[in-house]
Design a protein around this nucleic acid. Sequence first.
DNA 1: GTCTATACAAGGATAGAC
DNA 2: GTCTATCCTTGTATAGAC
Lengths: 216, 216
Amino acid sequence: MEKEDEPKPDGARDKERPSRRAEILEQARTLFLDKGYAGTSMSALAKACGIQKASLYHHFPSKEALFVACVTEGYDVATRELRRIMNDDELTHEDRVRCALAEIYKITIDSHVGRMSPLIAEVSRQIPEVARAFHDGFIIQQHEIVNAIIDAGIKDGAFVPQDRLGMEHLIFGPIVTLSISRQMFTGLDTLETVFPVEQVRDSHCDLILQLLRKRP
Amino acid sequence: MEKEDEPKPDGARDKERPSRRAEILEQARTLFLDKGYAGTSMSALAKACGIQKASLYHHFPSKEALFVACVTEGYDVATRELRRIMNDDELTHEDRVRCALAEIYKITIDSHVGRMSPLIAEVSRQIPEVARAFHDGFIIQQHEIVNAIIDAGIKDGAFVPQDRLGMEHLIFGPIVTLSISRQMFTGLDTLETVFPVEQVRDSHCDLILQLLRKRP
DNA sequence: GTCTATACAAGGATAGAC
DNA sequence: GTCTATCCTTGTATAGAC
């Protein structure tokens, strides 16, 4: 159990060109998302990168280490915009909810990180550390930001308090499920009618705000 | 002594002895859910069944066919209770929603069929027919039943109409996500505090009914 | 850092005895 | 219907030349 990670790039200076390692990770993420962990071979990854299989082992000591790197890197970038929205004092509380939801839809459906749930489920027993990293580094971050946005609205009297746990699941549940459904049912002709992103998002947002708004 | 010439039940409707084939499917479902499709080998399955690998091929022509059988069989049983609730005229509309939600939580979190989403996502591109079967035979069935329950409530003036697509996602989203989260984060010590089934279910149900109930 | 070549295990699937 | 034995492919990973 020895860690053999490359030194992390602190700034712009690199003792090693980021190109190759970064490209391997990029291709790996795409393949893992498409074929699953066990379904992705190092040969297929090498071919996707245009190099030989053995060369992969110069950058990563094992397939498992490579996968861990895929899953644990890049969370900060994913939630950066969300943090900005949370602190944007020029937005009303309702608009902050709308913008945050739109951003979470974007992250969860479009980004590699957001689409990793089925992948994590596949390997969670085999490589428990990826579940922990995904949970602490990604899931919890998002939940905390959304909670902060709602708390601010309650504090200012714009929102009515609701059960916290239920609201979290009501907000994130439909988004995660939509993302996974779209992965499950890629290729079905009914995909865009049963799982259309914009339409679900807008309707979802309206219903959430119905619950948060003060009523006479 | 080992002759299994069972006295065939007259006029019975058993197309085939359930014993061996059924046991293989049962073990396969457990292994596929635990290790994924590519991560489950025919050798491991044979060992779990206590037979030799070659014997599996007497019952199923290939691993893929075996998997398809795992995914396509058993939907009727899963949604039977849900159908009963829909038609139970002794329940109020609110109670029908409560019972239906409780049943969907049970199906989605406890049953093999309900926990298959990550698995379907893994193989959907490789074996498209399983996605179709899962969608038509399971997902759509549940949605239609829930829609019927809500429609009945609207018709009787107990519920206020809400956007249909949004409500579907608001109802199923948190349940599916909870199921997958519990699969992803099995083993995390915070599992029961962040993803507790009963608590989420009750809170979820209350919020849904807030949206459906008529307000002054 | 990347290559060719290779070690060695495990994968899916088949043949044929019983 | 289950077994043993086997085929061939693919898997991860390593050795060593350049």
